[in-house]
Design a protein around this nucleic acid. Sequence first.
DNA 1: AAAAGTTCCAACCGCGGAGTG
DNA 2: TCACTCCGCGGTTGGAACTTT
Length: 204
Amino acid sequence: MKESFGVRKGAWNQFEDDLLRDCVKLYGEGKWHLVPQRAGLNRCRKSCRLRWLNYLKPNIKRGDFSEDEVDLMIRMHKLLGNRWSLIAGRLPGRTSNDVKNYWNTYMRRKVQSDKNVKKQEVAANVKPHQVIKPIPRAFSKPSTCLQGKLLSNNFIVDVNEAAGANAISSAVSENWWETLLEDNAGNIGTCFFSGEDAVLDFLP
DNA sequence: AAAAGTTCCAACCGCGGAGTG
DNA sequence: TCACTCCGCGGTTGGAACTTT
């Protein structure tokens, strides 16, 4: 166990866990800078927050990822890249740390094993991996959308302007990005690993 | 049985964004 | 506008647990 400037580091013990749990129960989440003092813990705020989010928080799911979870993780990773917190947000009970660790271990290994099998296919058939990320937009004019009014329920998004890809239609909703997982017919695709750079493809 | 190597997860670190005065 | 603080995120590391030799 290490200490720097009197702040404890390293693994947490049961007593510290209890103090932190009681503190959050009493005051709620947030105000992490106050937590060490309130809980009587000799830990930095970051350490407290991390311990709570990754271990102590109720409803955290332990154990292996199910097939469904892995499948969803793969899809989300294709869409978002290494946005672990966003991916974890779609996996109830899983933390960003869990997702990240899982990806860095199981998936890396899977990619390695698939590498030899798919190498030639990829070279011949698969386009370079593209990660679609939300792109901040600047509005040249004041938009009614931004004033709390929707222009329409439908709008057109060109997801790949540079490559000249087909534009897709999408519906405006609170979780608009969920529809990015679907193909044009609204079906969720099947994806698989195929080689060199962990290229993922969707098969309708 | 024990040493060496590997895996896996909890925890730490540094950075960037948001909020505030 | 700037400086500062706090929060949250992703990358990385340390070390316990497990496996292999």
